[in-house]
Design a protein around this nucleic acid. Structure first.
Length: 427
RNA sequence: GGAAGGGUGGCAGAGCGGCUGAAUGCACCGGUCUUGAAAACCGGCGAAGGUAACACUUCCGUGGGUUCAAAUCCCACCCCUUCCGCCA
């Protein structure tokens, strides 16, 4: 959520930062276009009400004094009736105006950080660096490798649940589990994260705190008969662990890693990546979440990104780091780096991690604040990133480790997690 | 699902119609004392809006009601805890 104070103070700057996102973010009729007026109306009604309330409080106190001294207060009593009615009326209007204003605020995306490069589509994202040596020979798609080895069963997934579901068997199932353990161990033991385990179902308030609601309800699975949703990422429950809390400055930064399943309806991506397990309705992910002071948001983003990269390096998977341009940064984020992994069958890099700083946007929404040294409480900055998406990592391992004899060579770091096996072969 | 209890400041926890934005303790900040630290003592210390700064307003789970006046009384809802039942 944008800062109400800043909205009044730096309206033009904020509008410029929002406009860079393109689309109709600041267009006529957009929540942004109405927000200044809604704010003014809301404040005007509140001021009117407050003045009247101040008067009411004065008279009320006087009545108490007069009565306790046995004096007559009938004049004051008569005035109070009218005043109370008026206050009630003004309050109702003020509340309505406030609700309308708050609603609009929730629909406005995070103004971009000034360091985000301009751009009109994902084609304008900026490659920052590459790591590893991408193989250029012909490699079958992971669904072919998996089928050949008998470890990926897409038909079974479709029968059980529908398209975009996959059944993993044998070595693939074990690899899925091994990757989860491997990544969690790395972040908890080497990178200093505290591991948490959280619910995969959350309520509406929680989903609103991180920005998935109200705008993106169609992307979520909602539970029948309840105002609850399956999480699309661990970001939601882990960040909201601190909702409506005031944290002491010395408790920051807070760094959590978590494993959760993730559920996405993929409503807007019909037809994309229909084959294989790149785009699933359910997938596993390890997530990294930081809560930190505003000044540290960007340096922490570098640290977080490095932690995610460390996983790819340990797994010897070639990747590149891309900075998202203005048009591609998500609703709640102020700045984002994507990690993209090399998929030899597609001869291209595909997203495997998205590391973002949200500035104080989520902290403000979720009511997560901290008390700076000697100062007033203010919203924390939040960051998060995948460290990593398990399914896509598995895909990358199958393709990058594929051998001409049909077997798959596993990264050395994973061998202990695979019961000592260094390769997956048929049978 | 049934029964009972409870939701108050960073935390714990009093208050149960006006003098309460709220006792007390802990935590925190400043001071005295001390070679230093601890202890002890003294003082300060909720949040949001608003203001140049004051003033002022709001907030005791949420919403509604009673009243001149509500954290305090009434109603509805939500959540939590405990016990019972059922079940992984």
């Amino acid at each position: 959520m944008i800062d109400r104070q800043a909205l009044r103070r730096d309206f033009d700057a904020m509008q410029a930062a929002l406009a860079r996102r393109g689309g109709d973010v600041v267009a006529a009729g957009s929540p942004w276009a109405q927000v200044a007026e809604l704010d003014a109306r809301q404040r005007d009604l509140k001021t009117q009400s407050e003045n009247l309330q101040a008067e009411r409080n004065r008279v009320s106190k006087l009545i108490g004094q007069k009565k306790s001294q046995g004096e007559d207060a009938s004049d004051e009593l008569a005035a109070m009736g009218e005043m109370s009615r008026k206050v009630k009326e003004l309050d109702a209007q003020a509340r309505e105006a406030e609700a309308e204003f708050a609603e609009a605020l929730l629909e406005i995306p995070n103004p971009l950080h000034e360091s985000v490069p301009d751009g009109e589509s994902e084609d304008d994202n900026v490659e920052l660096r590459r790591w590893g040596d991408p193989r250029q020979d012909d490699v079958p798609a992971h669904w072919e490798i998996g089928a050949e080895l008998g470890i990926l069963d897409f038909e079974a997934g479709a029968v059980l649940a529908g398209s975009r579901f996959t059944v993993l068997k044998g070595a693939a199932a074990r690899l899925e589990r091994g990757l989860m353990q491997f990544m969690l161990d790395m972040h908890a033991d080497k990178h200093g994260y505290e591991e948490v385990w959280v619910p995969a179902i959350v309520n509406r308030k929680t989903m609103t705190g991180t920005g998935q609601l109200p705008k993106f309800e169609e992307d979520l699975y909602r539970l029948e008969g309840e105002d609850a949703f399956l999480i699309p990422t661990a970001e939601v429950p882990v960040t909201n662990l601190y909702q409506d809390k005031i944290l002491e400055a010395e408790s920051l930064p807070i760094r959590h890693c978590a494993y959760t399943p993730c559920f996405r309806r993929e409503a807007g991506s019909a037809g994309r990546d229909m084959r294989g397990m790149i785009r699933q309705h359910q997938f596993d992910k390890i997530e990294l979440v930081h809560l930190t002071a505003v000044e540290r948001a960007l340096s922490d983003l570098d640290a977080l990104t490095a932690h995610a990269e460390a996983v790819l390096r340990a797994l010897e998977l070639p990747y590149r780091v891309v900075e998202l341009c203005a048009a591609d940064v998500g609703f709640s984020a102020q700045k984002t780096y994507d990690l993209e992994i090399w998929l030899p069958s597609q001869r291209t890099y595909r997203e495997i991690s998205s590391c973002s700083s949200f500035g104080q946007f989520q902290g403000r929404r979720a009511g997560i604040r901290y008390r700076p040294e000697g100062g007033k409480p203010q919203p924390v900055a939040t960051l998060n990133g995948s460290g990593l998406a398990i399914g896509r990592t598995l895909v990358a391992i199958l393709e990058n480790g594929w051998q001409a004899d049909g077997s798959v060579k596993l990264p050395a770091a994973l061998v202990p997690y695979m019961g000592g096996c260094s390769a997956i072969s048929k049978g």
